[in-house]
């Protein structure tokens, strides 16, 4: 156990010395890894923001119950009581036809037109918010409410919810494909730098094997090399995303100000960052492992 720890410490120290000996080349390799990691990571973070933005801009999808004109106040109370019993309804709001007309006058500035109307054309409505956020359960709730007595129609901006869901699904798939492709690139990049390391350390490997080095011992520094390179690439990738978001936020702020609400891109959560770093380190390790496996047997003493 002690020996094992010493070996690992020495392997890590050896790799750090190698990095220090060739700082520019090391940094450039890490930068390449960082760029290939930052693309999917940045898109992923952006997608999360779009999701947030969408719910902020539209609010949660709500169902509007249009009551029949024959519904009197006792029927309205009855419906309200029924709605409040639903477990998957988060919020119920009643807007009477008079209130509706006032809001129309005030908010939309149609005062002149409505003033010309002989009688209020609006129905009484309930607006209902679901506790669910996915389109499927909201649509199910809509169908149930539609069946209530004295309800003419249960309206749901279903198309909007589905469109958003489809769009986000598309984005997620794109990020996934990009991550796989660039992850593959990362494995190849690491494999190649490790191959160069092995070639330049040929003598050292041969001599080490001659004086009793085991395969894991010979392999260890290279695995550290790959993993550490991937980890540093991950850190740099995070820095790239953070800087990019910071730069974009200036414009995002101006843009959302124009739409009179405030929204800024938020950086990935700690869990996401940890995921990014682990992903980078694992892929680096994998690249090194594959490369060492392929090239180490070529350096057999003879």
């Amino acid at each position: 156990m002690r020996i094992w720890l010493i070996h690992h410490r020495q392997a890590a120290a050896l790799v750090l010395r190698q990095f220090a000996r060739t700082p520019v080349a090391t940094f450039l390799t890490m930068l390449v890894i960082a760029v290939s990691l930052s693309l999917p990571a940045g898109l992923y973070a952006l997608l999360k923001n779009v999701n947030d933005l969408a719910s902020l801009a539209h609010g949660e999808p709500q169902i509007t119950l249009v009551l029949a004109s024959s519904a009197n106040s006792s029927a309205i109370d009855d419906i309200r009581a029924r709605l409040q019993k639903y477990a998957d309804i988060a919020e119920v709001r009643f807007i009477s036809r008079e209130q509706g007309l006032q809001e129309l006058n005030k908010d939309v500035g149609l005062g002149e037109i409505t003033a010309g109307l002989e009688k209020n054309p609006l129905p009484d409505i309930f607006t209902v918010r679901s506790t669910h956020h996915d389109a499927e359960s909201i649509v199910r709730l809509q169908k149930e409410l539609q069946a209530l007595p004295k309800v003419d129609a249960a309206l749901l901006d279903e198309a909007w919810a589905k469109r958003l869901e489809a769009l986000l699904g598309l984005g997620q798939k794109a990020v996934l494909i990009l991550a796989i492709l660039l992850g593959f690139a990362l494995v190849v990049i690491t494999g190649n730098t490790v191959r160069l390391q092995i070639l330049s350390a040929r003598d050292e490997i041969e001599v080490s094997k001659l004086i009793g080095a085991t395969d894991p011992f010979v392999r260890r520094p290279f695995l550290y090399h790959g993993a550490l390179q991937g980890l540093c690439g991950g850190i740099l990738a995070w820095a790239i995303v953070a800087i990019t978001f910071h730069l974009l936020n200036d414009n995002v702020g101006k843009l959302t100000d124009l739409y009179s609400f405030s929204f800024l891109l938020t950086l990935p959560s700690t869990t996401d960052i940890a995921g990014l770093l682990i992903f980078g380190a694992l892929l680096g390790w994998l690249g090194a492992y594959l490369s060492v496996g392929r090239h180490l047997r070529e350096v057999e003493p003879h």
Binding site: K209, L210, I211, G212, A213, T214, D215, F217
Partner: peptide, 13 residues
Amino acid sequence: RTAVPYLRRNVGL
């Protein structure tokens, strides 16, 4: 293959 290194540790070259 895995036993070879341990043999070599006992053989000075």
